[in-house]
Amino acid sequence: MAITTSALAGTLESSDAQVLIEPRAQGVQINLESSVYAQYGAHIEQLAHELVETLGITNATISITDKGALDCTLKARIEAAYYRALGKQQDFDWEVL
């Protein structure tokens, strides 16, 4: 789904990640900055791309500032940022999540 506003989720605490999602004319761009980039950068980028597919995000710049979050945390932060950008507060598709 297309987003029209920016939204933020998460914090910069250790073991968390902050995700900023912004509208983009076309396609999805993922920018990752991570304290564990050397060992998990590729893994986190792949996780983000898979999640973009699952959620059906079509046009967005997703900036992730990761402080060593586990996968479950990263997913939750990306999902939250996306739904906030959509203004969606209910009727989540829990099967997909």
Binding site: A38, Q39, Y40, G41, A42, H43, L70, D71
Partner: peptide, 10 residues
Amino acid sequence: QYAGEPSPLE
């Protein structure tokens, strides 16, 4: 299992 297997450093 929790963290994922780390990639080797370069």
